[in-house]
Design a protein around this nucleic acid. Structure first.
Lengths: 161, 161
DNA sequence: GCGCCGTATGTTACAGTGTATCAGCCTATA
DNA sequence: TATAGGCTGATACACTGTAACATACGGCGC
């Protein structure tokens, strides 16, 4: 699993350009700065096969003569995450890029493959109603939610049986 | 929210004894050792109001003359997590104790309160079917899942309006 | 131009999280 | 007693994340 899946397995191979284009449009619309560092970080994450840690990103962006500190990467990641261009995988402390829009009530689910280490996405709108009822029962007012499933992705199941 | 909620807000105040008793029974059944360190770690987590980090636990267990290293705490937490006596909150890198059994298909959900910092639990069995369908659509074979919701718990909503 | 201010970035330092490795200890069992 | 396996201690290290402060750059009013 080296891309992201949407819905019933809609693959986005090499979507680096997609997400960068979306970033440009978003920043233009909202009068935000799509700076070089932010672009570099986004391109690096988008080009990666799997999730990247902040220090991985910093290392890949650092060349002799231009060293990128991890703290700068974190700031760029915060910015990109805020815009929904990048997602944080809490159970891995790592980040993936995301080329498609996400709306509320969509039921975003992250799929973490134990075999190839890749991150997929799918949506399960059905779970929103049930989760909403459960939260009502518990008297809990939600603000944000994460759903992460660890297992084996389709590609690895085919490969290894 | 300084305990855990189960189902429609079933509270377990001061359940430290419950979970320790359950740990003893589990270890007896499975021929596992419920050592002093493991007991201490479990009691510390159970007695805490909110989630504890591994280093917090190590600090609380360290007294002059007996220093508990974080690495030992991690091993004990791994052991306890494996038995379902302790849960890890991925979005906080912290741990909470859990006095009740969990079965598959139960739809365990962690409720993280932004106001009081407490962790609650509830179950949403309804989401299992929907999530299962979504995973089928994506061709993904699940092994474990985490659902964490951040927001405001019932107690804090009453207190602050 | 000049100063002012807000945003972005650089730099350093530090706190927190987690793992690897090796050594010692304790206990059960032969 | 000897041995093997599980538990713990201790040290070191890598990774993750934040705080604090300095600097740079660009727009804006004067």
């Amino acid at each position: 699993m080296h891309g992201h899946e949407h819905g019933a397995g809609h693959h986005h191979h090499a979507h680096g350009l997609d997400v960068v284009a979306r970033a440009e449009a978003l920043c233009r619309d909202r009068d935000l700065q799509f700076t070089r560092l932010r672009r570099d970080v986004l391109e690096t994450v988008a080009a990666a096969q799997g999730p990247l840690g902040a220090y991985d990103i910093a290392e890949r962006l650092s060349v002799p003569g231009r060293r990128v500190a991890a703290v700068s990467v974190y700031r760029a990641l915060d910015f990109l995450t805020e815009l929904g261009l990048v997602h944080r995988i809490a159970s891995r402390n790592a980040f993936v890029s995301c080329a498609h829009e996400h709306g509320a009530g969509e039921g975003l689910v992250f799929l973490i493959c134990r075999t190839c280490g890749g991150i997929g996405e799918t949506t399960a709108p059905e779970i929103e109603a049930g989760l909403g009822r459960a939260l009502d029962r518990a008297g809990f007012k939600p603000a944000s939610r994460i759903v992460e499933v660890e297992g084996e992705c389709g590609a690895c199941r085919e490969r290894t049986g």
